[in-house]
Design a protein around this nucleic acid. Structure first.
Length: 417
RNA sequence: GCGUCGGUGGCGGAGUGGUCAAUCGCACGUGGCUGUAAACCACGCGACUUCGGUCUACGGAGGUUCGAAUCCUCCCCGGCGCACCA
C-alpha cells in the first residue's frame, strides 16, 4: 500500500493543497510547527508528531519548528486575546519541547528549528513592504476566527494576533528558501494559517509548495481530545504519570477505539481491523483498549515502562485480589501507581482518611473527599468506608500497604515505611 | 478624550437592596446497571467544620444602609458610538 492510500485509510487526511498522491510523488521536506504554549506536548500534538514519523518512514525529511517567535504573538483563538507569554517561559517551553521530540523519535532523523531565529530579527518596515503587501486585509477578515472576533462584542482582536497568519506564512517561506521545505502539515484547525504559507511561497518565490492537514482529534463529545476538565493528558511523565497515561487509553469508549488505533499506533491496518472485529464480538475483553493503551504507552514512555504500567494495572484491576498477588507484582504496582507514604509517627499523630484522599490527589478538597465518602465512593482494602472520621492506623495496612479506591477506576496505594 | 453598555462559579447564562454560596443548562464527580465502555436513572459539585454551623465570594478599593452581587464614588479591564488623528 502506498503512503497516500495508507494515510487516507487511517483517516489522517483532512484538507490538502493538492491531491496527496501528487504530493507524495517526490520525496519532500516536511515541516510541522509547534507553539511553545506549554512545557510539554500532550496527546493532541502526539497524533501529528506520529504522522510526521509516518512520513519519515516513507522517506521524507522532517523539520520540527518550535515557535519561539510566533509564540510571542499568539495564534488567534475563539475566546479572546491570549495573554502574552514572557520570554523566559517561552525559552523554557521551547527547550522542553525539543527534548521531548528527541525522546519521542529515537532513530528518526529530523531537523529542529526555532522561528525566533528569524522572526525576532525581522525589520518591521521591510516586512510590511515585502510580506505585508502580499496579504489583503479583505482576505484575513474573512477567516472564521477573525470574523467571529470582529463580530462579537467583548472579543475584539488585537493587531498583534491579527498578524499571526503573516508570520506563520513567512515561516514556511523561510523554510522553503533555506531548507528546501516543500510540505507543511498540521491539524485541520491550522489549515488557513498553513495555506497562507503556500500562497506566500507561490506569490513571492513563484514556487509550488504543498500542505495537508489531519483532522483535529476529538473525543466522543467532539471536544479536543485529552483535555477533559482542564486536565490535559501530557507526555511529560512528571505532568501525567505513565500509569495515569495508560489508564486514560484503557478507558477510551468503544466507539473511539478504531479511530485511535489508526491514528496513534503503527499497527498495520489489517491487524487493526481484526482487533476491532474481535472487540465488537467480545466487547467485555476490551482487547482494543488494552492494545491501544499498551502501544501508545510504549511510544510515549518506552517498552519497559509500558510493560510495568500494564502489569501494575493488571495487579490493581485484574481478577486476582491485590493482597493475593506475588511480592514482585505488588512491588511493580507500588512503583507505578499513585501512592502516598506514611511513617509510623504519622499514624500515632493521627491521619484521617480525608486528609489522605486530598494528599493523594483523589479528592480536590476536603469537602470533595467528604462527599466521596458520603456517596460511598471510597473503599479501603475492599471495604466501603462510610465513616467520615476514619483514621488511618496500623490496622488499615496489610503487609505495610493499603489499597484505596475511588470509584472503579482510580486507585491510591498507601505505603507504610 | 467624551458618551454609553458591560465585567457573576470550569464554561454559557440568570439575578438587579433582604428568603443568594447564588435559578438553569453544559462540563465534571460518585452511586445504581455494566465491561475500568456507552446510554439511562439518582445524588453531588466554594472552603472550613466539634456536622449545629462558620468563613470567604459576584473586576478592585472605599462609601450609603439594620442589611449590597444589587445603590453611590473612584480605579482597572473590555465592547460600541462620537471626537481627535490621518
Amino acid at each position: 500500500m502506498n503512503l497516500a492510500e495508507e494515510l487516507k485509510r487511517r483517516g489522517l487526511i483532512e484538507q490538502s493543497s493538492a491531491p496527496v498522491e501528487v504530493i507524495f510523488k517526490e520525496p519532500r521536506t516536511v515541516y510541522l510547527g509547534i507553539d511553545p504554549t506549554a512545557d510539554s506536548l500532550q496527546i493532541g500534538n502526539l497524533a501529528v508528531v506520529l504522522l510526521m514519523k509516518r512520513l519519515a518512514l516513507a522517506g521524507h525529511k522532517l523539520i520540527f519548528l518550535v515557535g519561539g517567535g510566533t509564540g510571542m504573538i499568539g495564534d488567534p483563538r475563539e475566546k479572546g486575546e491570549r495573554v502574552l507569554l514572557d520570554e523566559k517561559t517561552l525559552a523554557r517551553n521551547t527547550r522542553a519541547l525539543s527534548k521531548q521530540l528527541y525522546k519521542l523519535l529515537p532513530g528518526t532523523p529530523f531537523r529542529m528549528l526555532d522561528n525566533a531565529a528569524w522572526l525576532t530579527r525581522l525589520g518591521l518596515v521591510p516586512f510590511l513592504r515585502e510580506i505585508g503587501k502580499l496579504f489583503t486585509v479583505n482576505d484575513l477578515v474573512k477567516r472564521d476566527i477573525i470574523a467571529r472576533r470582529l463580530a462579537t462584542p467583548d472579543e475584539s482582536i488585537s493587531f498583534t494576533e491579527f498578524s499571526y497568519a503573516l508570520l506563520q506564512g513567512y515561516d514556511y517561506l523561510v523554510l522553503n528558501e533555506k531548507y528546501k521545505c516543500d510540505l507543511q502539515i498540521g491539524a485541520s484547525d491550522q489549515w488557513t494559517n498553513i495555506l497562507s504559507g503556500v500562497e506566500l511561497i507561490r506569490k513571492r518565490a513563484g514556487r509550488e509548495a504543498y500542505a495537508f492537514t489531519m483532522p483535529l482529534i476529538t473525543d466522543s463529545m467532539g471536544k479536543k481530545f485529552g483535555k477533559s476538565e482542564g486536565n490535559a493528558v501530557w507526555l511529560d511523565p512528571l505532568k501525567t504519570t505513565p500509569f495515569v497515561f495508560y489508564q486514560f487509553w484503557l478507558n477510551v469508549p468503544d466507539e473511539g477505539i478504531e479511530k485511535y488505533l489508526k491514528v496513534y499506533t503503527f499497527l498495520p491496518l489489517a491487524e487493526i481491523e481484526a482487533l476491532v472485529e474481535r472487540q465488537r464480538k467480545v466487547p467485555n475483553e476490551r482487547e482494543g483498549q488494552k492494545a491501544l493503551a499498551r502501544l501508545v504507552s510504549a511510544l510515549a514512555h518506552g517498552e519497559t515502562t509500558a510493560n510495568h504500567v500494564a502489569l501494575a494495572t493488571e495487579a490493581l484491576f485484574g481478577p486476582t485480589p491485590f493482597e493475593e498477588l506475588s511480592r514482585e507484582k505488588r512491588a511493580i504496582a507500588l512503583t507505578e501507581a499513585p501512592s502516598l507514604k506514611f511513617t509510623k509517627a504519622d499514624l500515632t499523630k493521627g491521619y484521617s482518611l480525608i486528609d489522605a484522599l486530598v494528599a493523594g490527589g483523589l479528592a480536590s478538597s476536603k469537602s470533595d473527599a467528604r462527599r466521596l465518602i458520603e456517596s460511598r465512593g471510597i473503599t479501603l482494602g475492599g471495604t466501603i468506608i462510610t465513616d467520615l472520621n476514619y483514621q488511618i492506623g496500623q490496622g488499615s495496612f496489610n503487609d505495610s500497604y493499603a489499597l484505596v479506591r475511588k470509584g472503579r477506576r482510580e486507585v491510591l496505594l498507601l505505603v507504610l515505611k
